[in-house]
Every structure is written in C-alpha cells, then in structure tokens.
Amino acid sequence: MKSRSNLSVVYHDNHLLVVNKPAGLLSQADETGDIDLLTLAKSWVKDTYQKPGQVYLGLVHRLDRPASGLMVLARTSKAAARLTRQFQARTPHKRYWALLQGRLDGAGRWEDYLIKSGRVVSVVSQKNPKAKYAALRWRALAYHKDTTLVAVELETGRPHQIRVQFASRGFPLLGDLRYRATRRFDGENLALHCFQLGLEHPTRREPMRWEQDAPATWSDWFAEVRAAVLRDSSEEHG
C-alpha cells in the first residue's frame, strides 16, 4: 500500500511500521536537507491515523541511502526500546541481495576488521585499536554477464559492511563507485536490497517476518531466481 507521500508501507499496527525504503532516500535527515524516510513515515502515520500534533516514530536501524529494502520503525517509546535491544543483540533476521561485479561461486563466511574514516570504511588489521569486528555469510545464487547475484546475512551491522567486505575481495557492488565499482547502477544508487526482515513483535512477543522483491531497476537481473528464493522462503515459513 502507498500513502499520498508514496511511502511504501508493508505492515503497520499500534506498535510497528514496516516500510520498503527506495534506493536514494535517506533513512534520517542529514546536513543535505533532502527528504528522508523518517519524515515521510511520520507524515504517513499522521495522515492515516489522523493524529493531532507531533507524531512519534523511533528509528531503530538504518539502511544506506543508495540501498533499498525493508526497515522497521517503532510507533511507541516502549516498542523503540525493545526493538533497539533486539538490534543490539543481533536477534533480528535480515537478508540482503547484492549484485556484484565479477564471478563469485559457492558460499562462505567472512570475518574482517573495519575502521571508518570520514565517509569511507576500510578493512584493517585486527591489531588496530579502533577496528570493529565484522562478519557476514553469503551464498552465490546466479551469474550472468560478469555479474553475480548473492544472498547475504549479516552477523554484525557495521557501516557499509556488505559493500566493503565484498569490494575488499575484488567484488564491488554494482554502482558502488566509492568502493571500487566501475559500473553504474540506477543513477547514484547501488545494487543492494534488504529483501527479508524478521524480528520478535515488541509487545506480542511473537515472530514476525516480511519479504519484498527488489525494485523495478533490478527487473532484468535474475528476476526468476529472486522469485524462486521468495517462493521457497514463503513455503518454508508456511
């Protein structure tokens, strides 16, 4: 469903608002003054629920501006606190699709130590006192025209983690010119999409899960493979 602000809302109740963030949209306002997801979401809640005055929404996690996919926002401070604890404990289940330059086969688990300097993240030695541990799991799903589709599960949530860990091994994401990509993708955006998000409902304490296919800009890239992944996941979870 979409509001008049064109916000793509996947699920909502009195405690949660789950949205499908488009690539190019900020998660939260910054110095650019560009429109952001949190502002649009507050407008959607105010309009949909006819709320007077200011609307509360808690931002409990983020997606990079050039990436797309599922995000959850908290509609109450209690929900925000409980969701924040979940994300700090790494219990939510997030799966991403990424399109990589080059051919990557098989599956694996990668561990690195990252450091952020300004707007750039780099892989550094474990001995660096400012380094942050980063780990992810990946599986190659398909290859065509020097492009690999991978599914990624994060074990940690470091800034630019997926982008940096793949680029450091010679497989930058399409469109990620900051991290060694030589091919553009959808203007200034990159080929990274959070297609699955699972977590415990903050008040009902029951498992919740949502899935969203990649945006239309991905239409020519492994559409049948992505559809099969979503179908198999739906059957697996009943």
Rank of each mutant, 00 (worst) to 15 (best):
T91M: 08
S68P: 08
Q212P: 14
R139C: 13
D112Q: 06
S122M: 09
K132C: 05
V123R: 03
A89F: 10
S122R: 07
K2S: 09
V55E: 06
D13G: 14
W110T: 12
L136M: 11
W221L: 07
T156D: 08
R169V: 08
L174E: 02
R204C: 12
L174D: 00
T84Q: 04
D34F: 15
D34I: 08
R226H: 07
V152P: 11
L192V: 05
V124Q: 00
S117N: 09
L73A: 06
H61F: 11
A214P: 15
A223S: 08
G58N: 10
V120Y: 15
Y11G: 11
R205F: 14
R137K: 04
R158E: 03
V45W: 07
Y56P: 02
S8D: 02
F171A: 05
N6W: 06
A80N: 06
V60G: 02
Y133K: 01
L16V: 07
A228D: 15
K130F: 00
L25D: 09
R184T: 14
W221R: 05
Q212M: 14
I162M: 10
I115H: 08
H201I: 15
G157W: 14
P159Y: 14
H160F: 14
F185N: 03
L99H: 05
W44Q: 00
V229P: 03
